[in-house]
Design a protein around this nucleic acid. Sequence first.
DNA 1: TCGATTTTGTGAATGCCTTCACAAGGGCGT
DNA 2: ACGCCCTTGTGAAGGCATTCACAAAATCGA
Lengths: 260, 260
Amino acid sequence: MTAQRDELNAVSDTADQRVVPGTERTIPEATVARLAIYLRALTGLAERGIGTVSSDSLATAAGVNSAKLRKDLSHLGSYGVRGVGYDVALLTDQIRSTLGLNENRAVALIGLGHLGQALAGYAGFASRGFRISALIDADPAMVGDRLRGLIIQHVDALEQVVRSENIAIAVIAVPVNAAQDVCDRLVAAGVTSILNFAPTVLNVPSHVDVRKVDLAAELQILSFHDNRKGARQDFAPASVARVGAVGSRLTTTDSMVAAT
Amino acid sequence: MTAQRDELNAVSDTADQRVVPGTERTIPEATVARLAIYLRALTGLAERGIGTVSSDSLATAAGVNSAKLRKDLSHLGSYGVRGVGYDVALLTDQIRSTLGLNENRAVALIGLGHLGQALAGYAGFASRGFRISALIDADPAMVGDRLRGLIIQHVDALEQVVRSENIAIAVIAVPVNAAQDVCDRLVAAGVTSILNFAPTVLNVPSHVDVRKVDLAAELQILSFHDNRKGARQDFAPASVARVGAVGSRLTTTDSMVAAT
DNA sequence: TCGATTTTGTGAATGCCTTCACAAGGGCGT
DNA sequence: ACGCCCTTGTGAAGGCATTCACAAAATCGA
């Protein structure tokens, strides 16, 4: 899955990438997912005035091991300096560029229930490369209201809004039974990337990427492991940390559905 | 510093398959993550009165291919009937049991900002095996208020609440700079599974599981793929003029400030 | 009873990711 | 200049996960 065989990707802006002919730098999906984490860690370092960082400490800050970090960075042809480490500012630029975050990306948010409103107000979007540029809901009572500086539009105007703002990324936070319909309309209007919070599988054509966040599923996965723990070492209240076999798992939301 | 529990798993890694008496099997992590999806799909089928389902149609409903589904189910020793399919009710039970969802699990929710309040009201938790049994926030103005039938408690009482309700699973929805502290206290109070919405890496001892949901990271991953698509040729559907050039440099340069 | 048909369960093959381990490169002190 | 030490970058190895493909059930109709 994960369709998208990528070919040429010009757009190298900051540092010149050695664009070796025939070397289509294909970056593993798992690596891409971690780049976002590295970026976050780098931002933290920069704020603390740290200008250079070793793979070891960056890896620790990002919660991975250093071999993995180095392998990941090697995929984007990054420039570390042996014996020294990585330049924080340079690496930040490299990753931002790789992720396509160099100018803020316009995002549409559909559905302004509790979750939608929380997302609308989430500062992390703005600070990390995204600008919510359209708020859409189906409730007539909400339409016209102003939220975070934007006017809420009716879902009837969805296509028009998406087209006029040239939006490629949308966030779906509508009730589960409306999700597929909204999705279809977004896709028809030209959206190519969707972040889905509705607990349902969305059907999309193969050129559209869908990522999902299923909150209850996350808890269920935790529940599974918790269940196991309870069964294995019979209890042991928070006193001693049995550091034996299983390491703590640190996992991310997964799933990249690329459609049929 | 910042010890990383990942440790070099020099110790037996594959050898920790301690099969406890009973039906303990080892289930791949990737499979566990999908079980939650299957469960959701099964619930949908049951609601439509469907009593039996083939691996093929269940797979379609869950957005995976049927071979993967069957392999997954084989790990939990499920009983499908050859030539017929799976009994929806039976399979539902099997998965619920595997995930440890047989009785509702108590969950504590820490942080009642916009996101926290949205989570508190999320019906999907209750309907899928979880009961939020404690709401905690640091804002004195909120403490004592009633939200969704629960009284908001002050974070000072965190340990006491967690212990008295015997809570093993917690959801962290506090600002990023408070997250590690809250995490430490939860762990000390006996919590063994954490779902983290704060955009930071949490440090925990090895017996604790952390899953994280990083909303901005999800968008960034989409951004990466979208970037790749745009760089290719436009295969613009119908009329939509997907601006070929990535140009349009408005350079909003709003730097990065820590989210919260 | 038997053969046709359907669909599961699973070894085997393949491919992706992670981890290992070390040579190559670069700075720094003397 | 010259070693010494540090850290990167990366082949190679090893583990998981996915997919393939087919034999083994199980039902049904005649």
